[in-house]
Structure formats: structure tokens, C-alpha cells
Amino acid sequence: MKTSDFSFALPESLIAQVPLSDRVASRLMLLNKHSGSIEHRHFYNIIDYLNPGDCLVLNNTRVIPARLFGEKYPSGGKVEFLLLTRKENKTWEVLVKPGKKAKIGDKILFGAGLLTATIKDIIEDGKRIVEFEYEGIFEEVLDQLGEMPLPPYIHEKLEDKERYQTVYAKHEGSAAAPTAGLHFTQELLGKIEEKGVKIAYVTLHVGLGTFRPVKVENVLEHDMHSEYYSIESGDAHIINTVKQNGGKVIAVGTTSTRTLESNAREDGMIEAGSGWTNIFIYPGYTFKCIDGLITNFHLPESTLIMLVSALAGKENVLRAYNEAVKEEYRFFSFGDAMFIHA
């Protein structure tokens, strides 16, 4: 299986640079994973395709303002940090630009010293382990100094930080948003529950590996990144009850999918717990838990389009993507949505 098998031509003009003012106004493509049939709707129509007794599974991670701009002490050289993973209370794994300005023992000041970082170690891929010093609560300092780490294909400045959060975001820790969930409002979720659809939550903290291109031609040689996930016992119970009663489990986003499939037993049942997952889902994979997927339109040759292709078939997905280009759907994080259903 070749990476180039998952390529399609995408005009740059179709990459959404800003979110719509109304979350539910995005377009929605419906793709039947069996027949390959396609319908065109708007996201507020999603409720018409969810049935009583189904379960919608949402990733309630919250994006932290993980991009920090500082100065090396005492030289004053400009340095940019991107927070990746919290190791301990004050210790983080980070990306640094430019890397040559971040040697072991160097100090970086942010906000005129409101936050100070010391480089403790250099690890794989040039990442750094740093220890922060600050007064008060780290999250409050970060909220004051940090910026949202928007994907590299978005060049416009985000005016409202909350527009890069889902309305149900709860647990801080992501370096990127689970973007399929950006289409939901509290009002729409309320209507979905009133219809008799169960809602369950999982947490997967999205890492920047989600944007990392596949650099090998043989898909099987790709080294998948690891991300932390957690599933509460109450949510596992909701999902399992729906499956036992014959309802469909519909994941919102590839992150929810990866969390559920990492944790599912062979019979599709979910166990509460937490851990790290580097599951890589590509065509040939047999899904154990999910029946449907609400997702955005992904990058060519990415692990995300491979996951979608595993669920709906590569030919169906590429035909749908080419139609999305023809119909001028908006792509990627702030773009339109697709519902892959049975």
C-alpha cells in the first residue's frame, strides 16, 4: 500500500482560513460507506441522520495556548516555543525555533520574565525538555502569554481563541483542536439528546503529530505518534449499553475513533481507563467499536485520510473528495464536514 494511493488534487483556495461565524452552517457531505452514495446537506441537518438509541462520542479535550514567544537571556535573541507534552508539574516537552538557540542550560524569558524556561535536555527530533518557573498557576500564566497553535496551513490570525475550541472542551492538554467537533453548538447537542441519541465523551490530547506528513512511500513503514487518552467509567457504560442494545456508535472525529478503537475489546465493548495510543488505522483494519464517523476533509496522503479510507473504502473516499473539490467544499480544520454512515 503506497502513500501516493491517497493523493488528490486540492486547490489552495479551498483550504479554510477562518471559521464560519455560525458553527452549524458548515456544509455536510453524507457518504454511505457501503454503497458509496453521496448527499449534500448542511451541518444542522446532522440530527436527521442520527437515530434514537445511537451514541455520539465526542472528544472533550481542550486546546492550550501552546505557542509562546520569548527571548534568550541575556542575549535577547528571539525564540519560539511550542508546548507538546507535560512531563511533570513544571517540566514539558517542547519544540523550539530556532533550535540552535536552545542549548542545555540556556534560559528563555517570556512576558519580560513572567515565565522563565531552562533547557534541561535535547531529545529525539530535536525536541527539548524544559523546566518552567513562574508565580501562581501555570495555566493562568499560559493563558495570558500564549497563542493558539493553529495548523501550518492556516495563515490568518484567529480573532477569538474560543472558536478553536469545541463548545464541550473540558480537559486541557491538546496542541491542536479535535476539529470535527467544532461544528456542534450546545443547542444542537441538546436537540440531539432530545431525539433519544446518547452522548458520551472520551479524552484524547491531540499532538502535533496529527499534522506530520507521511514521509515514506510504503504506508506500513510510517511511525505513528503517541497521544494520551482517557475514558471515564460512566461514558464506557453508555457506549457499551448502546452496542448491547443494537444502536450505532458514531465517533466525532478521528481522535475519538482512535481512542475507542485503541480501547475496544474484540467484541467491541469499551473498558474505562487511560494510557497512550499510537494506533495507526489504514485500509484493511477491522473496526471493533465504531459504526459511523463525523469528520472534516483531510490532507492528501495523511494518516487521517487513510483512517477514513479504512472505514469507507479508498475508492469511495477519493471519489467523495474529488466531488468535494468540484463542489468547492472548505477543507481542513475550519472547513466543512463529512458523515460516513451505513
Rank of each mutant, 00 (worst) to 15 (best):
R41P: 02
E266K: 14
E227M: 07
V202N: 13
L31S: 05
E71A: 13
K103R: 14
E147M: 08
F8Q: 04
G111Q: 07
K157G: 00
K195Q: 04
D54P: 04
K72Y: 09
I154Y: 11
N322R: 15
L145I: 01
F287H: 11
A251C: 06
E156F: 00
T241S: 14
F339M: 15
K248Q: 13
E193N: 07
N60E: 12
E232H: 09
E323S: 02
D336P: 05
V96L: 02
P300S: 06
V249N: 05
P151A: 08
I154A: 08
D54N: 12
G234K: 15
I38G: 08
L28T: 11
M29Q: 13
E39K: 15
V141G: 09
P11L: 06
N51K: 14
T203L: 05
A342G: 14
G53N: 09
E39V: 00
E301A: 01
L208E: 15
T257C: 15
P213F: 02
N316F: 01
L220C: 09
T254S: 13
K127N: 13
P98D: 03
F110S: 02
Y168G: 08
I122T: 15
D48L: 01
T259K: 12
F211N: 13
D291N: 15
V130Y: 04
T118A: 03
K127H: 13
A324F: 01
R86C: 06
R62E: 12
P98I: 06
F69L: 15
D5M: 12
Y329S: 03
G70T: 11
Q165R: 02
V57F: 05
D235T: 05
N60W: 00
N322T: 02
L83C: 06
P283A: 01
T303R: 05
R41C: 11
L145E: 11
I199K: 13
G111M: 06
I47Q: 03
F339P: 10
E93A: 00
